[in-house]
Structure formats: structure tokens, C-alpha cells
Nucleic acid binder design. Structure first.
Lengths: 117, 117
DNA sequence: TTTTGTTATATCGGAATCCGACTTAGTTGT
DNA sequence: ACAACTAAGTCGGATTCCGATATAACAAAA
């Protein structure tokens, strides 16, 4: 396995949002769910099944890591953090999506930020 | 179907790229595959299985439509086009993703090469 | 203290999706 | 006739999605 962060298939919406939630700060599972809902203004609310399937997959791929437990906090919490690989993959995906957004804008004729129906 | 384009779950990468390919002009299946490869610089190459599963799904959801056959062209070709619903959903998804990109940029500290002004 | 509500992790299994190998066949060029 | 490319489509195993459900610690009120 020579996983050099190159040419991963596109991230699924769930994986993208999880990495994104962790790009701000280390978070535990429950907080990730809340953060995704917050980031998408409640439009996307993955359930626990999706969350843990994806956490396991991202752990196996080495994109995230378990972060040390914080004392004086609820001991149930299990924190996750982005690895360097995870940061790289996320950054690449963001760049890729921005190129896609540019094409979409041209084709759809959307402009700046001023379109409200 | 009373789905009014509101609060669809996020589009899968495949569905997003298919809608995007059709947002430029009507295309037949084979051309869609080529266009996705072109748009992503060869980074994403969905196979026929993914393509036709998604075309069927998008047809059922009313996001795309079959376009009339063009005479004087290869008669095997079956063209698809975006419906108004498809345009709306795609435009919404683009806006949603752009909000996500903004957050990602902040969190990752990527230099903003994307200036539309 | 008991109860209620929230936080938090985790599993299960059916449904949906992904995806390449394969099939069939028309078109083009030699 | 042949080969290469174009084009649509099928198939089935693997993967992913995702809500219902389970379990339990914590918080605050009753």
C-alpha cells in the first residue's frame, strides 16, 4: 500500500463533513454530529451508524487518529483528530471541489453571492 | 412525489458530477463519463455501473429527463438533460458546498486564490 | 432518591449505492 | 473482413448508508 494521498476517490459527503468538523479542533463523536448539523444549518444530520462506519474507515485509512483523553472531563468522550494525511486529503478535496464549483458557476450562471431566488 | 427540492440529502459525488456534466449541455451517457473525467482532470472516473445506477435514480427523482434524439447523429446515443428541478437542486448544492468551502478555508488556513472580485 | 432529560458510545441488519467486468452492438477506418 | 473505438446496458459482490435500538454515565429537577 503506497498511500501517498494522491488520487483518492472523492470523499463521500459524510467523510467530508467529518474531516471538516475535525479541521477546526479535536472533537468526540457526539460533538462531530452536532458540528455537522451546525455547519450545514441543520440540512445534513448523519445518524450514529454513518458516523461510526466512517470514523472506523477514516481511522483505518490513517486520516484521523485517537486523541488523548482529557482529564476533568466526561470520561466517556473519545476524541479524534486529523492526522497530517487527513489534512492533506481534506485540503486536496477542497481544492478539487472549488474547481468544480467554478465550472458549476459558469454553467449555471450563478454569480458572487447575491442570488436569493 | 411531493418532494419540492427542499432539504435533499447531500448529493453523492457521482450524482453531483453527472448533474454538473449536464449543466453545460445535453449529453449522452458515454459523453457524461468523458466529461466527468475531463472536469476532474482524470481524478474521478466512474464506471458504467455507477453511471447508469445514478441516471436511473436521477430520472426517477425528476432531476433529469430524456432529450429528443438528434437526427443525423449516431442513433445509439441517448441524450439526457437537466430538468428545472435538477437545476434547482444543483444550484442549491453548489451554494451549500460553497459555504462548506468557506469553513474549510478558515479551518485549514488555505490561502485564498479564489477571488471573484 | 427517584426520575427525567441529555450526553455519549456503540451495534445491528436491511436498504441503497458503488463499481468494474462483462455483454451486445453500431460506427469508422484500413 | 478486420480492428478499434464508440455506446448502452447488465450483473453480482462489496461497500456504504442510516435509523432503530441498546447501554450507560451525567445533570438537574421532583
Amino acid at each position: 500500500m503506497k498511500e501517498s494521498a494522491k488520487s483518492f476517490p472523492p470523499l463521500s459527503p459524510a467523510a467530508l463533513h467529518i474531516l471538516l468538523a475535525l479541521s477546526g479542533e479535536d472533537r468526540h463523536g457526539y460533538a462531530i454530529m452536532q458540528d455537522i448539523a451546525r455547519q450545514t444549518d441543520g440540512k445534513y444530520r448523519p445518524g450514529p451508524g454513518t458516523l461510526y462506519d466512517n470514523l472506523e474507515k477514516l481511522l483505518n485509512l490513517g486520516m484521523i487518529d485517537e486523541a488523548p483523553v482529557r482529564k476533568s472531563e466526561d470520561p466517556r468522550r473519545r476524541y479524534y483528530r486529523l492526522t497530517r494525511l487527513g489534512q492533506k486529503v481534506l485540503a486536496e478535496e477542497v481544492r478539487r471541489l472549488e474547481a468544480v464549483m467554478r465550472i458549476a458557476r459558469e454553467n449555471l450562471g450563478l454569480s458572487g453571492a447575491t442570488k436569493a431566488l
